[in-house]
């Protein structure tokens, strides 16, 4: 496994998904995840489920979980905002133990949301929905993904991982 604490490598993320026995990745592409997509496409233990709007991801994940599978949702924070009612009903309401990995568009550790205004709404949205979240910026944070899976399973509810690495190593 490639390890680089200065950036977040898609190999490290895929390794986390595999070690947490993920069966399906329900996803809508964003600018953070193309390299991860290429890796996942070649990973036989994971089935990719492409959706056309992020809210759809939560109901797909709920169905998969009902049937005994372990999905992860891979979307961008813009789409998270669109997903509010679906997250409420299909995620929180049905107690779906799913991790959503969310591209944190517009976020920088310096506090400047220079690229996109959606960053300033992201954490307040999660807090309002009662969703706990972990920030992952580089490979040094990678274990937080496992923490999120453990928390989702234990509490039977969605947990978020904010991927704060846009415009660097994932592209």
């Amino acid at each position: 496994m490639m390890s680089n604490e200065g950036s977040l490598s898609p190999e490290s993320v895929l390794s986390q998904l595999k070690s947490n026995n993920i069966t399906h990745v329900v996803w809508l592409p964003d600018s953070e995840t193309n390299w991860l997509y290429l890796l996942m496409k070649n990973e036989p233990s994971i089935e990719l489920v492409p959706v056309s709007r992020e809210g759809q991801a939560f109901s797909v994940a709920a169905g998969l979980a009902t049937g005994g599978k372990k999905p992860v949702i891979l979307i961008q924070n813009t789409g998270l905002l669109e997903s509010g009612d679906s997250l409420r009903g299909w995620g929180i309401g049905l107690k779906t133990p799913v991790v959503m990995m969310i591209g944190y568009r517009g976020w920088t550790r310096h506090g400047k949301n220079a690229f996109h205004d959606v960053a300033k709404f992201t954490e307040p949205f999660l807090i309002a929905m009662g969703i706990n979240y972990y920030l992952v910026e580089n490979d040094g944070d990678i274990d937080r993904i496992t923490y999120a899976f453990e928390e989702a399973d234990e509490n039977k509810k969605p947990v978020a991982v904010l991927v704060g690495d846009e415009y660097s190593s994932w592209n």
Binding site: E47, F58, S59, A62, G63, L64, G68, S86, G89, L94
Partner: peptide, 19 residues
């Protein structure tokens, strides 16, 4: 019933994939 309107097709599809 109606956990959140707009999601029934996707939920049933997810379940079908799983089983």
């Amino acid at each position: 019933g109606d956990p959140a309107m707009g999601g029934h097709a996707s939920y049933a599809f997810g379940l079908a994939l799983a089983i």
